[in-house]
Amino acid sequence: MNYIFYFLIVFSIIIGAVNGKLQDVVNSVMSGAELSVKVAFSLIGIMAFWLGIMRIAEKSGLLAWISKVLKPITRVLFNELPEDSPAIGDIAMNFSANAFGLSNAATPFGIKAMEELQEVNKDKTTASNAMCLFLGMNTAGFQLIPTTVLAVLVGIGYKNPTEIIAPTLLVTLIAFISAILLAKLGQLISNKTSICKIKNKEVEND
């Protein structure tokens, strides 16, 4: 993250200067900072509402039931999680909300899932394999109906906007599956390299 942050800022200033847009870049610092707080504050109410609903779902045993139903899938995907982890119910709620286009509800569910994953994470500043997988699945943005896109298309007088739904679904499904496979590949590679490191240390100790 350190390099990404450094790259974004230093690279933008240099390119901005070359393009003669340095003033715009300077202005964007202020507007960006303002925007991020606006986004966070606009989340408060939505977040509070859905976290409240989520708590009822948890207390009434709905989440436990969902995680039980999904166990065959989640056990393969999140193989490093304890079997009865409460994160699984939250992850399931996050994906259902995303799939049905309730992106407002999906974010609080996703954050709740992250908190549960953090509970069982050994190093609290480093992302666990389960977290990377969950994040990857989320960035693929799986949804059944792209409501915002449809609204724009209807707005410009597109005759048959729903013909977009099928190809979008196909593409998002491909991206979703590749995210899972890539995350699993990352897990495999990083586990292997950490085993190598431990082995090297053992050799040094001998």
């Binding site: 974004l8 690279f11 200033i13 715009d24 964007s28 900072a33």
Partner: peptide
């Protein structure tokens, strides 16, 4: 902030 600087550049 990083992203909006990148876009403005």
């Amino acid at each position: 902030v990083g992203i909006s600087m990148f876009r403005a550049s």
